[in-house]
Write a protein that binds this DNA or RNA. Structure first.
Lengths: 124, 124
DNA sequence: CGGCATCCGAATGGATACTG
DNA sequence: CAGTATCCATTCGGATGCCG
């Protein structure tokens, strides 16, 4: 069997097409509006809250905070208090987070590649 | 420069981190709740509406219909009326859609790979 | 079969103000 | 700096009914 096959009943028994599979929840977390961008932003280097906020155009504090919590709960990133006064917190990807982020980066690259075609389709 | 680098100002000038870049809209369309699953479902073979609906656990008719329209508008898939009576419509990925779907499949495989760690993190 | 139109409650998400 | 709390508008998304 092709190891890159993502059809149902993959080697490990997960199936994103099944509504109740836990992998579905993970998929929704990482492909959420800000989840993917947050992971991509942290792919290169750990960042602080404010840095992330400036880097990801259009996120509100609320959404970034919420997204970070979800990713942390899923074990994709860690939250570390670097300094108390002034308060400084650093967010960094875990191993699992790095793997997912790499896949997200590849997806983003693909988007860049097809974007001219997409723009063309929309204007037509 | 690493060609797989997805940081801002990639070779083609797109930047998903910029709120107004058209690539951001594309990213949101394909990473939307049902967009990613729809593309993945069509990666192997074209499908009819009902087949897609049954394949993607939990989609409502309304949402699937809406998602298909968005993907079609972005030139990622085509809608073809195969038969009039009874009405039969087939959805198939375009070249651009195939490229994106391949990246989504890779992401799904990555999710499967890290899912045990994610489940572990959530239960802990 | 493959939709679209409408209604409506629930969830999402932004702006603003405030806190340790 | 790094959030939290609140308010409010928009959107999501299921249910229902109808149509070609």
């Amino acid at each position: 069997m092709d190891p890159s096959d993502a059809t149902p009943s993959a080697e490990l028994g997960f199936d994103v097409f099944a509504a109740r599979c836990t992998s579905r929840a993970t998929m929704e977390t990482i492909t959420s509006r800000w989840g993917a961008l947050t992971l991509a932003a942290l792919a290169d280097t750990p960042m602080r809250f404010g840095e992330l906020r400036r880097r990801i155009g259009g996120v509100s504090e609320k959404m970034l905070s919420q997204t970070l919590k979800q990713l942390e709960a899923g074990g994709l990133l860690t939250r570390t208090v670097v300094s108390e006064t002034p308060l400084a917190v650093e967010y960094a990807l875990t191993d699992a987070g790095q793997q997912v982020a790499a896949a997200i980066m590849a997806l983003i690259d693909t988007v860049y590649r097809v974007q001219p075609a997409v723009d063309e389709a929309r204007s037509a």
